[in-house]
Design a protein around this nucleic acid. Structure first.
Length: 273
DNA sequence: AACCAGGCGCATA
DNA sequence: TATGCGCATGGT
């Protein structure tokens, strides 16, 4: 993989497999939208950017500082060999079907707090409305980057608010969970920084101390926010997949990369038929 | 007009 | 330990 950097563009070449549209729009992140010219616009790593690809070239346009390329390499999980992982997963026939149907999905390494908060909002909810609530959350409480873009608000900022303050989000019963999460994270009662490296069961216990965080939301926070690809979120779609295809559990080829297998199976099952 | 949405907390047995 | 129900809001 090679990196090309200047203050307006970061290009990573030789990224394989890579699908920018699938990666940004497969239900793991909620703040990316496709523009009419085919670029994807959104805010991550503290910056508003436009993202596109040309085969194995991942092209990020924005306004960058020295060192930003490392942040974006981490965000797109470029240090992980997805070619090798997918080859192994495809030894299972269902995973081969799923991966061949939608190749190039990568697990994003989002900010831990953003992932946690986003998936608290996701519970018993649908993706369009999740996106709307998160958009209003950023618009009301994020930092204004100009051009209509806002950062995801910090836990510290939200920890000072009340449930009533969140009324503009129209997040329903989830508002009290957002506040509780923000307070526990801001106070340090829940330490997000250690979750990427500590024992995964310890990480799960830490997260479910938050009201509104159960097993599924905790797995999502670990997978999408902490780089824990061994986390395995089971939602209604994955529950169906497990019942229909894997009544005995996931095949051995998924060991250690259950979360990546999950993402391919999830997207495939939601989009076929 | 019911039912559902990338679930969870709580009551009940 | 294991079910079942209610939950805010909005779309079909």
């Amino acid at each position: 993989m090679e990196t090309e950097f200047n203050k307006n563009t970061i290009i990573f070449s030789g990224v394989d497999p890579l699908s920018v549209p699938l990666t940004l729009d497969c239900g793991q992140a909620f703040r990316w939208s496709e523009k009419s010219n085919g670029e994807w616009h959104g805010v991550a790593c503290g910056k508003a950017v436009d993202i596109s690809q040309n085969d194995g070239e991942l092209i990020i346009r924005g306004s960058f500082c020295e060192g930003d390329e490392a942040l974006w390499a981490e965000y797109f999980d470029l240090g992980r060999d997805y070619g090798k992982i997918c080859e192994k997963l495809k030894t299972d026939s269902h995973l081969k079907t799923a991966i061949d149907a939608y190749p190039g999905i990568r697990i994003l390494k989002q900010e831990p707090w953003e992932a946690l908060c986003s998936f608290i909002i996701s519970q018993n909810n649908n993706i369009p409305r999740i996106k709307g609530i998160i958009e209003r959350l950023c618009l009301n409480f994020g930092e204004d980057l100009g051009g209509g873009d806002f950062t995801f608000p910090t836990a510290e900022k939200l920890s000072a608010l009340t449930v009533d303050d969140l009324a503009p989000l129209r997040s329903g019963f989830r508002a009290k969970y957002i506040i509780d999460a923000a307070q526990k994270v801001a106070s340090g009662e829940v330490d997000l920084k250690k979750l990427s490296s500590c024992d995964i069961d310890e990480a799960r216990e830490e997260l479910i101390k938050i009201k509104g965080v159960g097993a599924k939301v905790a797995e999502c926070a670990l997978l999408y926010g902490c780089g824990r690809v061994d986390a395995f979120p089971v939602d209604v779609w994955v529950r169906r997949i497990m019942a229909e295809l894997y009544p005995e559990g996931l095949p051995e080829c998924c060991n250690g990369v259950e979360g990546i297998a999950q993402q391919y199976l999830f997207h495939w099952r939601r989009n076929v038929e």
